[in-house]
Design a protein around this nucleic acid. Structure first.
Ligand SMILES: [Mn+2]
Ligand SMILES: [Mn+2]
Ligand SMILES: [Zn+2]
Ligand SMILES: [Zn+2]
Lengths: 123, 123
DNA sequence: TTGTTATTGCGATAATGTTGCAATAATACA
DNA sequence: TGTATTATTGCAACATTATCGCAATAACAA
């Protein structure tokens, strides 16, 4: 399964990089040129498999995708909290790492921590 | 806007109480008698307004509702983390309270912290 | 018992995300 | 450079979750 470089992938990656904060499908659609809905989702999920981006689930239940920073190959640290603005919908990574203690017998596999409120632009 | 006591409300509340952990619409539908989808959602959102239940958004983007415990009227503490099992889909409240520091200019309004993994039954 | 209106059921609708399949195009290789 | 392979795309259909308008129903106050 060899990967191929395509314009759509470049466009999506470029959009995510230049935006800085996390983006939903909807946000991406507004920025990149007109690709099919399925194509964009497939690209995002592919990126996620490859460890290029990580996913945040918003309070609205929507998926947001953000470029991985501070992540090494094979060693991702996504235990940071995210912030979602209730007004402008922006989703960003906070630096806050946090430590989680689970009860006995529980196995941690993922973390999705989301603080919602007003960002500095909207407060 | 006076509230009225109905069988559907009693049933939903009873289901949530006896289950102990958070429930999705789907889970509720399987337990209570046959009410319309919209009715159940309206009841849940009503309960939320009244501060009887709180809502957790799962990693799957679905809504889960749990009875409020440790909450006083007008003073809810929902800054606790929740745990969702990737196998049996169960969602429960963890005792872990956590402290969140936001950057300057940010206003906190809500928190949805979700750890996913395997519960003690499924691990 | 009766009137008011909160609540419900029904149907339609919106939004998000995935999938199967045939067409297209990126890439390896002759 | 030309050709074959197959990863990727577009399209349409589908699944799921959740909300909403409206008319019918039923809780409850008087
Ligand atoms: Mn990462
Ligand atoms: Mn509460
Ligand atoms: Zn904002
Ligand atoms: Zn489990």
């Amino acid at each position: 399964m060899n990967r191929r470089k395509t314009k759509s992938k470049r466009d999506v990656l470029e959009a995510l990089k230049s935006k800085g904060s996390a983006m939903s499908h909807e946000m991406l659609e507004a920025v990149v040129e007109d690709y099919n809905r399925a194509t964009i989702y497939r690209i995002l999920n592919r990126f996620r498999e490859e460890g290029i981006v990580h996913r945040i689930v918003g309070v609205n239940g929507k998926q947001y995708f953000a470029i991985c920073t501070n992540c090494e190959k094979e060693n991702h640290n996504h235990n940071h909290i995210h912030f979602q603005c209730n007004t402008c919908e922006k989703v960003e990574c906070l630096n806050e790492e946090l430590q989680i203690n689970l009860p006995k017998g529980y196995v941690l596999e993922g973390f999705n921590g989301l603080v919602s409120g007003l960002c500095s632009n909207c407060s």
